[in-house]
Amino acid sequence: MKEAPDPEPKAGEVRIRVEASGVNFADIMGRLGLYPDLPPIPVVPGYEVSGHIDAVGAGVAPNWAGRDVLAATRFGGYADTICVPINQVFARPPGMSALEAASIPINYFTAWQLIVVMGGLKANETVLIHSAGGGVGIAATQIAKHIGAQVIGTASAAKHAELRALGTDHLIDYRTEDFETRTREITNGRGVELILDAVGGESWKKGYRVLAPTGRLGIFGISAAVSGKERSLLGMLATLARAPWFQFNPLSLMNANKGVFGVNLGHMWGEIDRQRQWADQLLNLWTQGAIKPKVARTFPFAEAPQAHHFVQDRRNIGKVLLVT
């Protein structure tokens, strides 16, 4: 940590006094040197914050000053003060806490893109959600249940009781059970219409096999490449080598009536207007009580390393946040 002068908002920006910042697996991969989008070190990571606006730049309506907001940040979120373009800032609904607000941009936007925008999940279909206890997993479960779908989740056995209470219909202990076998048992051999997979490698291969006809595999990460607390290029290469490169060829997809798609919210900065539409729908669902972020734990900014270890050790059920 270090002190720096308060930034001044440029034209089209607002300055946010941060109350909470989200911790995401992309931050961990960046720290390990495995995330190519991260600018060269030294850099301040962080993709999402909540707080209140205390200054506005030229061209921004003065009435934004003083508002409680949440924002998507293109890095820089691990700070107590940040300037953000106004089109990446969203007013917090009345009653939404700073902790809930900081839990929404990455996890819920990603889940919405996976399930609704690209996954096309419908009522009475079945979705398999890997890492069901993570921030995206819980967000996706809530959205899927609102749609009327059945949810199968993978998580360690210690998390099962709480995840059932959060709405997951069937749970698979990925440490002791084969998710491909168990998914076929749960679905009576049919398979699932949608899979959300941020694991990668062998998991993609098995997931593709367990898709039902017209099923879609949504890929949004590669956590299997992070096998330890230090950077391992060999681990990344080994994970990539286990990916089903030949299964995903056009002829195979056509003949199997299956689809594979990828999601990386960090490459959607040119689509902010679309994301604002997603935000409107998500914040409306929050107002209705259909979605509710679950905060696993908060850490002071000075304990950011401990927050990273908490996530990487798979100890969280829900969102991990840094707080001022």
Rank of each mutant, 00 (worst) to 15 (best):
Glu8Cys: 13
Pro9Gln: 10
Val14Phe: 06
Val14Ser: 08
Val14Gly: 06
Val18Ser: 00
Val18Cys: 02
Ala20Met: 08
Phe25Trp: 08
Ala26Leu: 09
Met29Arg: 10
Arg31Leu: 14
Leu34Asp: 12
Pro36Ile: 11
Asp37Val: 11
Pro39Met: 10
Ile41Tyr: 13
Pro45Val: 05
Tyr47Ala: 11
Glu48Ser: 12
Val60Glu: 05
Val60Lys: 05
Pro62Thr: 12
Trp64Leu: 11
Gly66Trp: 05
Asp68Leu: 13
Phe75Cys: 03
Ser103Gly: 13
Thr110Pro: 07
Gln113Gly: 10
Val127Arg: 03
Ser131Ile: 02
Ala132Gln: 04
Ile143Trp: 01
Ile143Met: 04
Lys145Met: 11
Ile147Gln: 07
Gly148Asn: 11
Gly148Ile: 10
Val151Gln: 03
Ala155Tyr: 01
Ala155Thr: 03
Glu162Gly: 04
Thr168Tyr: 09
Asp169Ile: 12
Leu171Phe: 09
Ile172His: 04
Ile172Asn: 02
Thr176Arg: 14
Thr176Phe: 11
Thr176Ser: 15
Asp178Ala: 14
Arg190Tyr: 07
Gly191Lys: 00
Glu193Leu: 09
Glu193Asp: 14
Glu193Arg: 11
Ile195Cys: 11
Ala198Ile: 04
Trp204Cys: 10
Gly215Lys: 01
Ser223Arg: 05
Ala224Gly: 10
Lys229Leu: 14
Thr239Ile: 08
Leu240Cys: 12
Ala241Gln: 12
Arg242Phe: 06
Pro250Asn: 09
Leu251Ser: 14
Ser252His: 14
Val260Thr: 08
Glu271Ile: 02
Glu271Met: 13
Glu271Gln: 15
Leu282Arg: 02
Thr287Ala: 15
Thr287Ser: 15
Thr287Trp: 06
Ile291Met: 08
Val295Trp: 05
Ala296Lys: 00
Arg297Tyr: 00
Ile317Thr: 15
Gly318Thr: 04
Lys319Glu: 01
